[in-house]
Write a protein that binds this DNA or RNA. Structure first.
Lengths: 207, 207, 207, 207
DNA sequence: CATGAATGAGGATTCATTCAT
DNA sequence: GATGAATGAATCCTCATTCAT
């Protein structure tokens, strides 16, 4: 009944926060389902159940299933970028790369998942929008990484010439992709052997 | 009623050949559909149309859709093995690996396809049988490759110690996986840059 | 959010009631379809239409078509038991048995239907579960009937020795089965003749 | 080349015989399949395999599946009539009726089968032609049986008045139907008990 | 906001029937 | 005559999406 000047504002803000938290809940649930069943075999009922809400409610937050897939893909791309960014320390580079092999599948929608990495990549073959988003995200990651390779050691970089920086960081990315692939295809692979192989390439790539 | 000693034999043989050619036709069609739509979105009607036959006829040659998926996976694993085997020549190694990036998607069911490589890998997350088949095929490939790294140069090998042979060939596989991944995720990637990156790693890995 | 102690309870109860009424609607529709077309020629689309709902909705209430068949069989067995139980009055016994010949095919899933009696019996030849359910239900009916034959007249029974009670009530069941069969196979059979035949056997069996 | 006046005739005759034997082979196979799977779940491929011939060939001898069903029904009706006819001996009447309970399912298309008795009866609900055929066959059987009840003992009959003969033989038929039904629904029924029940009714009906 | 019942189009699979060989 | 490959309509069932409550 009273006119609280903050009331409307606070309500909107609270509503927005609620909305975001609901979206997050859905995305976390969807991620679990997608990891388990793939984008196309996971069904909305399962996602709803995993999110502890009714199927109908999901449609208040996402236009349709594809919008959820796209949101997951986008969050995966960001999670990948974050993870690559964290790598920038030559000493730990090899450990960080090897760590992809051990990555456990997290429930959080914003953590990187190797199965989803493959799911997304496969999806890119079919959906041009997905292909574009992935391609752009990966290019950005490589540019960023190349910039680090290029910067002088004084600035915390590796001090390579621009072209060579690009080439060496591509080599590094190939290595990361390779480790992810092995995780999925040969999960029982000998860790020590992998470590040595990664070390060898990291050594030559970082100079 | 007539006693033609070759008759029965020839008949059986012709029927068997027909059967095999029909299976091949279905597999080639399925491959195209799977590349285009993925294992689960490709539908039997589309495969039938691509194979130029009625949906019902497919079931005379494959028990169900899953049997087709498994047959495609098996043939892809074999095609991959063949392709890796052809690599054994240090001079052309780098070219052969870079070639993965250019691979066109062939209609033949027994040619290797990068999109299917991802589709299969994603499937392995869900289906233990697929996971096992892939894991075993990849292990076999690595063992074979390692044997080449180990053999003395006189025998056409690279002459590394067993452990080191294993480690170096794993590094090579990581590289191949990496190139495949880039093909899918950054198809516009600069070939020259890729070539240099691959060359650099191949050089250090082979010796 | 509100604390209405009856709210949850009432909601659950209403939902349960709805669920039951939907199941009943489906069973009544299925019964009509099964009588008309038999278990295997009746199709889900027809049942859905008869139940005035979409085909998909049926699967919210029954796992599959077979579950509907089994539910119908179970309800038919119970309806048969009820009907046999109502017979226990020597004066009306003959009328009650003859009545099987006049039975109209009701829409209600829980009323006994002669065509379904045959459909079920035929099904029992193929499905061991059905065979077991029928056999047990029929045995139970006979046991119950035999108990009535055995009880002393003071207790409203017929006062036969246990073995004879069993034998006489089996004779009665043979008679009931016979009337049902004639209804299906010779629906134009002369009622008066049937009545006399039934009377004659009932007389000797009960007395 | 020679004009043998009997040749054409013999050829036709041989062809006719062949045709009949083929039809019989199909009917025997169909009977086995129908007993095992029912009219509607038995499929042409199974019948063809059971008859040791190709599916296509069946259509040279029967217009379609329904024609086979009708032929089986017709042969079953005839087999039933034969069996009832063989009953005419008061001494063995009870044994003959009880024998229905022991009837094994024969491979021959012209032997009576209890499961098919039910399958046919169920079918009669749906197909008016089947209903008519069954009704007429059963009426004929009853008429024939009644005639025996009516004939004087000198003529090997039982010497009842026409109306009573009809009524008593209907009672007998009810009994036969009842025994068949129990065979299907309670195959573990105590034989001794059944025998006594049948004896009791046969005694009163024939006496 | 939230629910979950309801829809109906779409997908895998089966099978009676035909027909080229 | 005989085969069995081929057809395609029909069937069961699933699931993304909607909407009354």
């Amino acid at each position: 009944m009273k006119a609280d000047p903050l009331d409307g504002c606070a309500t909107v803000s609270k509503a927005e926060m609620r909305k975001q938290s609901q979206r997050d809940r859905i995305l976390a649930a969807a991620m679990r389902c997608f990891i388990k069943s793939g984008f196309h075999c996971a069904n909305m009922a399962a996602i709803a159940e995993a999110a502890n809400m009714s199927p109908g409610l999901i449609y208040r937050y996402f236009e349709n299933k594809n919008a959820i897939i796209l949101a997951i893909i986008r969050s995966q791309l960001m999670a990948s970028q974050c993870r690559i960014r964290e790598m920038r320390n030559t000493d730990e580079l090899s450990e960080n790369i090897t760590a992809y092999f051990e990555a456990r599948e997290d429930e959080q929608a914003d953590s990187m998942s190797v199965p989803l990495f493959f799911e997304m990549s496969a999806e890119a073959t079919r959906d041009p929008d997905v292909a574009k988003a992935i391609s752009e995200a990966d290019s950005a990651v490589r540019r960023e990484l190349a910039e680090w390779f290029r910067r002088s050691p004084d600035e915390g970089g590796l001090g390579f010439a621009p072209d060579e920086a690009r080439e060496r960081c591509l080599a590094l990315i190939l290595l990361v992709d390779g480790v992810k692939t092995r995780k999925l295809r040969e999960p029982k692979l000998d860790r020590a052997c992998l470590k040595k192989a990664v070390d060898r390439i990291v050594a030559v790539v970082t100079g």
